[in-house]
Every structure is written in structure tokens, then in C-alpha cells.
Design a protein around this nucleic acid. Structure first.
Lengths: 221, 221
DNA sequence: TCAAAAGTGTTTGTTATACACCCATGT
DNA sequence: ACATGGGTGTATAACAAACACTTTTGA
């Protein structure tokens, strides 16, 4: 019997840090060690369905950006059995699922992708693969917005990109580049409760993005 | 018993046309119909190894650009059994494997990706996925060179991009853009046997590309 | 000598970079 | 009043797009 599993890379960006959700394994040899939240694929579901179900069952999260990443099939990736796993890639908006709500549901925690604990099997390799993918993809497709609240300020957006790409960006130039792409809609609203001038809030205009994409536009940086 | 297979998308560019290799199935219900060249994954090999083996066994091709593309796992993708397949993505240099050598080895043929025959299972969907992936990737990473002979002229390179992206490009501007990236090494050699001025030949400088990539350079268009 | 492609030059407008700068607000 | 971030302006250099043009070669 050949086993297939799914493993979810669940990313979130809080405090200008790119974080990933890990769970402590509760059973078996790997008990007590950190790993990716995953599960077996069932006979009556596709890998995508298994990933969605796992995400929901283990974290209460649903309806988020979820994408198939890569299938890992090295013969010895698992010490005892032959298990092939397909890794998925989820981006979480902090306004929908707060850090706390996830942590209390199971023995889970968020980790800065730059300082991960020891991980089971090849999960370290899978995460490295996923982070590299995120860094590339975020520059060529407007997926970053899935890591922000529906409404966000331009500085929040810039901080997000700086956290993911691990660089500093020039504020005026970043703003202009973003605004010129015409993917942001002004919410006609300002952020409140900040100890400085309140910034305008924007929202990602998916409709217009699809329109532009059809005309040959492609998101860059 | 759950079955895993691999399917190879083997691309080649000849006569300014992007082509893909299909085989005629010889056994079972799908006998006589066109599909992707694939095989079962064995217990003692990874998916990558299975893809490489299949590529070699069925076409005599080895040592080419080969990349995992996506895993297709819809419950009903195969009419009779539950089969999960991982699609791979290969780029073939015309100087290494001529059209003819492949065709004679089995009931196979090259098809223009823009006019495909009726295909078994979900292979049409898989090919569409692969072609879209190629179009995106070729603009952001220098993988196109794997579809050309080791030595090539700038016009051959331009024709390749035009075939893949399905557009016309401006010759002088294309040349300048390419040369500025400093990824091409002059072979100090000219093409012969052409009915016009012989063009200089270049080769892709992988060493320099890796060097530049480390410094933060990224290939674009 | 002509067709076909190689290869160069130039003009114009756009965009990127790197700053300096002023504005608004809560403490 | 000042710290913090919001937001604008601008000079310079680099680049892209469009297109005209000259050169080389085999048939």
C-alpha cells in the first residue's frame, strides 16, 4: 500500500516578519518534534481537497489562498515507510485568523522562517523550497495581498515586501510603482488609532487586475 | 493499491513552432489514441527518477532539462482507476535529438501545441497547464536556451521567444536587451550554409549567470 | 543584382534611482 | 515640541520603443 499525504506551508506576516505555522507531533516516533501540519490523502478526495480539509481540521482556517507547491517523493524521505507528500502553500490574512486563535486550537506555533526549530523528516527542505517559491512568485504576481488585511496602507504593503524579500525599499519609489499599476482601490477611509498622521487605506482590485492581465499586463515587483 | 504515474511534457522548437511529443497508446481501452509519454512509478525510485527513466526508455533521450511541473489527482481523471500522476516538463535541444530519431523508435509524433489532436484522460488539461507554465517561466528565467542548439544565432533566439510567447519582437531592441544581460558568450564562429550574411554564434554562459544571480540579478524577458 | 537576414544608429518618451522636503497627528 | 510615519517633488541617468539605415552573403 503506497501512502500519499499532504503538508501545508501556512504563511503569515506579522511584525514585519514572515512566519510559518508548525505543529508539534503528538504520536509516533516523531512525537514532540515540530513539523508541518499535514494529513493523509483519503481515497475519495483529490490532493487539493485533502489540503483544504487538513487546513480546516487542524487550524480552523478556510477560504484562503492555497496553491499546490511540489511533490516530494525521495525514497528515504521518511525513515520507516515509503510516503509521498504533496506540499501546499497557504497565505493567511492576519485580520481573518489571528495568531492566538490558531495557537490555542492545537499544539502549534508560528516561527520566523529565518529561525526555524529542528524539524522532522525533510520538512526543512520543503520549507526552504516554499520560501524560495514565495520570494520568486511575490515579485511576478500580486499574491502578496493575501498576507494583508483586506484594507491596508501603502507602508504595510511595503513592509510586507521588505519582510518577504529581505530587503529595504525606497518609500516614494515603491508608492509610485504600486499606484501606477492601478491595482489598488482607495477605500476612502483612513487608518485610526495610530500615533501619527493617519494613512489612506487601499484594497487590492482583483477585477481590474484580471482585466489588465487579459490585455497583456503583468505584475512586476 | 494506489497508483502513481509520471507523464512527460517534452517540448521542442522547430521551424519557429513550439512542439510537444505525443505517443499513440498501444494497449487497453485507450489504444490508438494520443497521449503523453508516461509510465508507472516503481517502488524503488522517486518521481524524478521515474520521469528520467521513462523519458529514456520511451524516447532514448537523457540528460536534458527536466523539471517537476504539477501533480494531478482529480478523483475521476482516469475513467477506471484512481491514478495520481505527476507531470514533468522537459526541454529538448534540436541538435541532440532530431525529430526523426524519436519518431522511429515508437509510435510517436510531434505536434504544434496550438493544434493538438484528441487526447486521452486529462492530458489536454495537463498540456495547457504546462504551456502556460513555460510561457511564464521563459520570461523570468533563462531556460529557453535548452530549446536551442548549444551554439545559436541571435535571430534563432528571437524566433524561439516569438514562438513560445506567440508575439513579434523588435530585432534591434531584442538584441540589445540580450547583450546587455551579458549571458551570451561569443563563440568566435559564424553559422555556415545560410543564403545570406552569416550570423555570429553565441552560447549561453551558465557560469556567469550563476555569478550574476548571486549578486541579485534576475533574468527578465 | 537581388533577396534575406546581419547588424548599427538615433530619436523620443518613459521609468528608475536617489534624494530632499513638507504635512498631519497623538503623546 | 517632537517623534513617527504619510505623502509629494525633482534632477539625473538609464532604458524601452519605434523605425531608418548600412552591411554581408549565397543564389
Amino acid at each position: 500500500m503506497r501512502s500519499m499525504s499532504v503538508d501545508n506551508l501556512i504563511f503569515c506576516c506579522e511584525n514585519r516578519t514572515l512566519e510559518i505555522l508548525l505543529v508539534k507531533h503528538a504520536v509516533g516516533k516523531s512525537r514532540g518534534q515540530w513539523g508541518l501540519p499535514g494529513d493523509w490523502m483519503k481515497d475519495d478526495e483529490s490532493l487539493e481537497q485533502a489540503a483544504e480539509r487538513t487546513l480546516f481540521e487542524r487550524t480552523g482556517i478556510s477560504d484562503v489562498y492555497l496553491e499546490q507547491l511540489h511533490t516530494f517523493s525521495d525514497i528515504n524521505r521518511h525513515p520507516d515507510e515509503r510516503i509521498i507528500t504533496t506540499a501546499f502553500f497557504a497565505l493567511i490574512r492576519p485580520d481573518l485568523y489571528s495568531h492566538v486563535s490558531v495557537e490555542t486550537q492545537l499544539d502549534a506555533d508560528w516561527f520566523d522562517v529565518k529561525s526555524l526549530p529542528k524539524l522532522i523528516f525533510d520538512h526543512r527542505k520543503i520549507i526552504n523550497f516554499g520560501v524560495a517559491h514565495l520570494k520568486t512568485k511575490v515579485r511576478h504576481e500580486p499574491i502578496g495581498f493575501n498576507l494583508l488585511s483586506k484594507k491596508f496602507s501603502l507602508l504595510q504593503l511595503q513592509n510586507l515586501y521588505e519582510a518577504i524579500l529581505d530587503t529595504k525599499l525606497d518609500k516614494p519609489n515603491f508608492r509610485r510603482k504600486m499606484m501606477k499599476m492601478a491595482l489598488l482601490t482607495d477605500c476612502e477611509e483612513k487608518q485610526s488609532g495610530v500615533a501619527h498622521r493617519a494613512p489612506k487605506l487601499y484594497r487590492f482590485d482583483k477585477t481590474n487586475y484580471n482585466k489588465l492581465k487579459k490585455k497583456g499586463f503583468s505584475f512586476e515587483l
